[in-house]
Design a protein around this nucleic acid. Structure first.
Length: 618
DNA sequence: TCAAATGGCGCC
DNA sequence: AAAGGGCGCCATTTGA
């Protein structure tokens, strides 16, 4: 049964449909959303939302929690992505317009779940006028869009992913992915509303201990000011450590020809200014990223409120907007404290990514090693002379594409012992280098290279033909001519430099420089696709884990998912329920493994711990 | 003068 | 001698 609901200023409109789209109960307007709770309790429908992040908060505010949903926008993003069409409108209005062959309206601006946005909300003066968003869809329109998406969702998600490597892909993989993405959206909406319990007093004491008392506006904290003086004294002339350029020039004047002041570069330098500079950077980071201003902006009523955004990263990982919820440094986690009578059940999936590699590549040897609790320990015993550090370095090098140095040497061992696993990531890298796309285990596609990338790499003679690959992947539309400017579009799939201009080192010129840049761009993209097959498959697993867990937690009184970070989550729960929640967390991980990697011997263990304070979890 | 880019560093 | 995926955020710097 489907319950399609739209939210409007006066309340909501809801209609009930059978799974095949036959209308069971016509649309009716509700001023009081509380009525939806009865519908949920009686028939457990799958709620169809245009965008969960926009629509579900109103239900939550009325005290209505739902079990399952289908998020049109998130599903559309996945489906369009598989056709190489990233960045196109995803909302139901756009789906319907495409199905009818009409003009496709832009998506409306996403709702700001936190109310006051800190981002500039005015479009820039010179920004071009956006087309108006489409008229609001009705519940019937939502269901039409849903059925259209069902029709376009193949039962098996074959393609340039695990299936191509001869590894089993779960039946209905793409449907599972869309269900998990929708489930993640429910988790995110609830988590955004609830927030991570955060003790402002403890946080302030952390700040005071490290930085000194809170400075007056425009002043440096005392400890930072003292270090700045030390730095100036060590150089013998005034230096502003907040300015990377000033700092770099200061080291140059002192005889150290560095071109960046990154910490790992400075550590190699023997100069009296280095220790205070490193210490200063440390404190400055705490002060600017998680200092008093952060506390005032993002912590209220004892909760850290960050907006969680599933589906906003190409690999399927979540992002956050505001508060830096996914970058909480270890140094402040002491402030994450359970409320009285409660505990935090903290659980992370140990060494998830190498285990995922073992599963998607079907490498029997690596899978055998993955049976142990510490994968790297097993790896070390099996070919690295017991050296866990070397084993880990080699594995990370394989997954991230390190091609030089110690890691590259160690990878040779890996290649001999685990040929299927190494072959798998290298095949993914080759696809990337030749402009093709890759997919996660459940069928999420990576973005194709930009037009600019194709011109550079494809046109240079080396590399591939730029074929997009994948089913119906028609690239990004027409080749706009040889203008040599712009193009590219919104995707940032060409590598860490986001294109090429950034790597302009000195005399670029034509000919040789162009060749080099083309090779560089190809390698960058190879690393991206190499990592994508692992990172995105891990995100698949984690989305299923979250979705299954959320469903089972609905039967535990006052259990709240309050944090999620790629492969780690926190449930805030009355202390007496902590053991039960721990068990549910483990069970959900097992279910996720069975659903995402059916028949694979690979284990994806999680180890929940019940603590009062997040910092005590490790 | 303001927006966009850059440098740097935190998390996974 | 300097490497290597994904992100967000801040202060500084640059460019229009």
């Amino acid at each position: 049964m489907l319950a399609a609901v739209t939210i409007d200023p006066d309340g909501a409109t809801v209609a009930i449909f059978g799974d095949d789209g036959t209308e069971l109960r016509p649309a009716r307007a509700l001023a009081d959303l509380t009525d939806l709770a009865a519908l949920e309790a009686e028939s457990h429908p799958r709620w169809v939302f245009d965008a969960t992040a926009d629509d579900y908060p109103a239900l939550l505010a009325a005290g209505v929690r739902v079990r399952r949903c289908h998020d049109i926008a998130l599903a559309e993003r996945i489906l369009l992505g598989r056709a190489g069409r990233f960045g196109e409108p995803c909302r139901a209005a756009a789906v319907l317009a495409r199905a009818n062959g009409g003009p496709v309206p832009d998506d409306p601006e996403p709702h700001d779940a936190l109310g006051a946005s800190r981002r500039p909300e005015q479009p820039g003066l010179f920004e071009k006028e956006r087309p108006a968003p489409g008229t609001p869809v009705t519940p019937a329109g939502l269901v039409t869009a849903y059925l259209d998406q069902q029709r376009r969702t193949p039962d098996s998600a074959s393609g340039p992913g695990p299936a191509a490597a001869g590894v089993a892909v779960p039946a209905g993989a793409l449907r599972l992915l869309i269900a998990a993405e929708s489930g993640s959206a429910l988790v995110a909406a609830e988590m955004t509303r609830r927030g991570l319990p955060w003790d402002a007093e403890i946080h302030e004491s952390i700040l005071t201990d490290a930085l000194g008392p809170r400075p007056r506006p425009g002043q440096r904290p005392a400890r930072m000011a003292a270090l700045a003086d030390e730095i100036t004294e060590a150089f013998g002339f005034p230096v502003n450590p907040d300015s990377a350029i000033d700092l770099r020039d200061a080291f140059r004047r002192s005889g150290f020809d560095i071109d960046t002041t990154r910490a790992w570069v400075l550590r190699e330098i023997d100069h009296p200014a280095v220790p205070p500079v490193l210490r200063y950077k440390d404190l400055a980071r705490l002060y600017t990223a998680n200092g008093w201003t952060w506390l005032a902006d993002w912590v209220s009523d004892g909760r850290l409120v960050s907006e969680y955004l599933p589906g906003s990263v190409a690999s399927g990982r979540w992002a956050t907007r505001g508060g830096g919820g996914l970058q909480l440094p270890k140094s402040v986690r002491r402030a994450a404290i359970a409320r009285p009578g409660h505990l935090l059940v903290v659980a992370d999936a140990a060494q998830l990514e190498p285990r995922v590699l073992a599963a998607v590549s079907g490498d029997a040897g690596l899978a055998a090693v993955s049976a142990g609790a510490d994968l790297y320990e097993g790896l070390a015993a099996d070919g690295f002379g017991g050296d866990r550090r070397h084993a880990k370095l080699a594995m990370l090098g394989a997954m991230y594409g390190q091609t030089t140095g110690e890691a590259a040497r160690l990878m040779a061992t890996l290649r001999v012992r685990y040929p299927a696993a190494v072959g798998y990531v290298e095949a993914a890298a080759r696809r990337g280098e030749t402009g093709q796309v890759v997919r996660s285990v459940l069928g999420r596609a990576c973005p194709p290279p930009s037009e600019r990338w194709r011109r550079l790499v494809g046109g240079s003679g080396s590399g591939g033909d730029g074929a997009a690959g994948g089913d119906g992947s028609d690239g990004r539309g027409g080749f706009a001519g040889d203008d040599g400017v712009l193009g590219g579009g919104p995707d940032r799939s060409d590598g860490p430099v986001g294109g090429l201009a950034a790597s302009g080192d000195g005399q670029s010129g034509a000919g040789d420089g162009l060749e080099r840049r083309a090779r560089q761009a190809a390698r960058d993209r190879g690393r991206f696709t190499r990592n994508f097959v692992i990172q995105a498959s891990a995100a698949d697993w984690a989305a299923v884990w979250l979705t299954v867990l959320r469903l089972s937690l609905m039967d535990v009184p006052d259990a709240e998912l309050v944090f999620f970070q790629h492969d780690e989550l926190i449930v805030h729960v009355p202390a007496e329920h902590a053991p039960r929640v721990s068990e549910l967390v483990v069970r959900a991980a097992d279910t996720a493994r069975e659903l995402v990697f059916p028949g694979s011997p690979v284990q994806t263990p999680v180890r929940p711990v019940a603590v009062q304070c997040y910092a005590d979890a490790k």
